[in-house]
Each structure stands twice: as C-alpha cells, then as structure tokens.
C-alpha cells in the first residue's frame, strides 16, 4: 500500500480514537464496566467451592457485553456525527479515497475496542491478584478471541450501516446478527432435525452459513473443558476465520460506500 494512503487511514483511525475516548458516554461506560467487573468478586461468593471460576466467568461475560457496547456506541457516535451532522462532507471532498475512509473508521473503532478490552483485562488481572485465580497465557487468549469476534461485529455493523438507508436500521440489523451469531450451534441442530421442513431448513441454512459463528470464539466456556490449554492450530483457525470475515464484510461495505451519495 502507498505510504500516503496508509498515513491517511491512520489519521482517520486516530481521529476516531480521540473522539471516542473524549466522549462523555464512553467515560460513563468505562465506569460501569469497571464497577460490574469488580462486582464479579461479590457474585463469586454465591458459589462456594468454585469462587475463582465464577469470578472469571462473570468478569469475562461482562467484558464481552461492554466490548459489544463499545463497538456499537463508537459506530453510532461516529456515524451520527459523520452522516447526520455532515462532518463527512468536508473529509471525503479532500483527496482521500472512500476505501481509505472506511478502512480508517474500521481501524479506529478496532483501536477503541482493543483499548477498552485491555483496560478491562487489566482490571480483571488486578482483581485476580487477590489470590483465588492464577492467570496464565490461556486466560489472555479468551479476551483476545472475544476481541476478534467483536472486530467482526464492527466490520459487519459498518457494512450494514453503509447499506441501510438510516443509522437505527443498520444498528438493529447488526445487533440481530450479533445475537444470531451466538446461536449458530443451535441453528445447526434445528437444521439437522429431521422434523424441520425443507423451506425452513433452506432458510436456516442460509442464515447459518452467512451469519458469523461467534461460538467458535467463545474460549471462556472451553477454558475448563480444555484443561486450561488451547490448541494453537485452533487459535490460528479462528484468527483466519475472523480475518476473512472482516475482509469480506468490509469489501461489501466499501463497494456500497463508493456508490453512496451525500
């Protein structure tokens, strides 16, 4: 990639990061995330004998929830400003391609997400120093996989918003896709059920193959099944899956964005 193109993408990503971390809503979200993750320590008291495990499960579930909220809020804030307030008019009339513009937005949102996930993981790490859980590298792989799935969410949300005629429709569709993505294994069992009709099977199969399979990235539940270790080949596979999904989603988004009029 040309040096100037890369610098423009970075400049756009940097702006997204600056705007998001300065936004009041994000400060409130950070406080809530910290409080809920801290609160996981209290919940673990309810499950005597499995304190460490409960804490980790609840803390990671909170991380995923707040990671998802971070992605949605950043996209909402950025898109609202860019499209509804027309800040994008001045940017895209400068010598920057629409491809670089959209990639810059995606990388910016990914940076916000990675920052949020890192801070939340540091809070979890700090709390584990109380001694009930001894973290190893596999505990770090759980939020890393979570971040990959949330980057996929960011990519398809950007694409859906680009294709949709308005911002709320895009957000609603991508939230639905996020939920379906967590239910793909259940979808599979419905498709395999002989009692399911042909039409329903076809429709569900379409959803199954098009929707992202977020269950693949759920290392939290596999942490104890795998005895605390993960197959590096599996990690590589899900990383490639995420990269391909992001690439495909952004490719469609860019194609749509190039035809978009303002």
């Amino acid at each position: 990639m040309e040096k100037h193109k890369l610098l423009k993408i970075l400049a756009i990503a940097q702006n997204v990061l600056k705007e998001c971390i300065r936004h009041k809503i994000f400060n409130i979200l950070f406080i809530f995330a910290g409080a809920l993750i801290g609160g996981s320590l209290l919940i673990e008291e309810l499950s005597p004998g499995a304190e460490g495990r409960t804490f980790i499960n609840v803390a990671y579930a909170n991380m995923e929830l707040f990671g998802f909220l971070t992605v949605m809020l950043s996209i909402f804030i950025i898109t609202f400003e860019e499209v509804e307030m027309r800040t994008l008019w001045l940017t895209i009339t400068k010598p920057v391609s629409r491809t670089s513009y959209l990639l810059g937005k995606f990388f910016g949102i990914s940076l916000v997400l990675l920052l949020t996930m890192s801070v939340m993981f540091l809070v979890v790490f700090g709390l584990t120093l109380t001694g009930k859980v001894h973290l190893n590298i596999n505990y770090l792989l759980v939020p890393a996989a979570m971040s990959l799935s949330l980057m996929m969410t960011a990519a398809f949300t950007i694409t859906l918003i680009t294709i949709a005629t308005n911002l709320p429709t895009g957000i609603i569709f991508s939230s639905l896709l996020f939920i379906i993505g967590h239910l793909t294994e259940h979808l599979k069992s419905v498709i395999e059920n002989p009692q399911t009709g042909i039409a329903a099977k076809t429709a569900l199969a379409l959803v199954y193959y098009l929707a992202p399979n977020f269950e693949l990235f759920n290392l939290k539940d596999k942490l104890y099944l795998a005895g605390g270790t993960f197959d590096p080949y599996y990690i590589l596979q899900i990383t490639l899956y995420a990269v391909l999904y992001v690439f495909a989603a952004l490719y469609i988004g860019i194609k749509a964005f190039k035809k978009k009029e303002f």
């Binding site: 610098l7 400049a11 702006n15 800040t87 001045l90 400068k94």
Partner: peptide, 21 residues
C-alpha cells in the same frame, strides 16, 4: 460546516493537512 465535536481547531486542521499530504 460541521466538525467532529470533540476535536480542537488545531487537530481538525492538522487532520485535513494530512489528507492533503
């Protein structure tokens, strides 16, 4: 004209300058 609300004039002009290479 509208600009990103959480940036400063210095930052937004620097950003446009980057886009102009």
């Amino acid at each position: 004209p509208y600009f990103p609300r959480y940036l400063t004039p210095l930052e937004i002009l620097d950003f446009y300058g980057k886009l102009y290479e």
